[in-house]
């Protein structure tokens, strides 16, 4: 039995190198004084430092900011996470609750944060296996067979992803378009388009962003954490719009819009 020893050892005793607040003096973040050491750093730089413990240069920061700016801010309340922010608005809930809940549901599988981590993980796994002499077509085939899909390729609504071109343009401008993981991401697309798969799957933005992050050395979990606030720019307009319009009017559904296909009508008899 392991027992409660770890609890005894940590009772009123949390040892950390991440940081702390000191009254009158300010805060320390990963060994640096927030007021003194971060004066030149942007918010993006501070966030990346908080997540990774590393300071990135100007070009890298432009790339990371571009990943958020170009790829994740669609102010459309039909998109599920944005719709939560908008529903919170139309139901007259608070902005914080709406944006928090919308962010939480962005941790989904077919888009959002699970796709984010699965995508970069796959690129790292493939890269490692290729270095061990495996063949990319075989790797893609295995991924499709074992996991019934391949994260970062294909799209539920439309085949081609319109975000690829502007993001790639920024990466090219910054000199990041030729990294090993970018080449791998497009090589996977070539395999998916050239072979006789059940579906022809184009690369989507999740694979491109994961490849860019991998080329910058972010680990799977660092990249996942970095992406968590990325949709906020699309959520706020949806919430505000719903607040500004008549309450309760965002996509109202009449009773007959529920199509019931369950058990037939019956009586609840109490014995």
């Amino acid at each position: 039995m392991r027992g409660p020893e770890a609890l005894f050892a940590s009772e009123d005793h949390w040892v950390t190198s991440m940081g702390a607040w000191f009254p009158q003096r300010g805060a320390i973040l990963r060994g640096k004084a927030v007021f003194e050491d971060f004066q030149e750093l942007s918010w993006m730089g501070l966030l990346l430092y908080a997540i990774t413990g590393r300071v990135f240069d100007e070009n890298q920061m432009r790339l990371f900011e571009g990943m958020w700016k170009l790829c994740a801010n669609y102010p459309d309340p039909r998109i599920w996470n944005n719709r939560v922010a908008a529903l919170a608005g139309t139901a007259r809930s608070t902005a914080t609750l709406g944006i928090s809940a919308a962010t939480a549901i962005s941790e989904s599988t077919i888009y959002g944060f699970r796709a984010v981590i699965r995508c970069i993980d796959m690129l790292y796994r493939f890269q490692q296996q290729l270095e061990q002499g495996m063949d990319l077509t075989t790797l893609v085939q295995q991924e499709l067979e074992i996991h019934q899909g391949i994260f970062g390729y294909g799209r539920p609504i439309k085949q081609k992803d319109e975000r690829i071109a502007p993001m790639l343009a920024l990466a090219q401008e910054l000199g990041y378009a030729g990294g090993a993981h970018i080449r791998l991401a497009f090589a996977i697309e070539d395999v998916l388009l050239s072979k006789r798969w059940r579906w022809r799957l184009h690369i989507n933005i999740a694979a491109l962003l994961a490849a860019l992050a991998a080329d910058q050395g972010l680990s799977c979990r660092e990249y996942y954490r970095f992406m968590i606030p990325c949709f906020a720019g699309g959520m706020f307009p949806c919430h505000i719009d719903a607040i500004d319009q008549t309450e309760g009017t965002l996509f109202p559904l009449r009773c007959t819009r529920i199509v019931y296909n369950g058990a037939a009508r019956r009586r609840w008899h109490t014995p």
Partner: peptide, 29 residues
């Protein structure tokens, strides 16, 4: 577009299609 459900069915009020007069859960009123 509609919501599909095996759980819930609603019958509208006569004067407002957006208000339910009756709600059935798995067939029970």
């Amino acid at each position: 577009e509609v919501i599909h459900s095996r759980i819930w069915e609603e019958v509208p009020e006569a004067d407002n299609p957006f208000a339910a007069a009756a709600c059935y859960c798995s067939g029970y009123d």
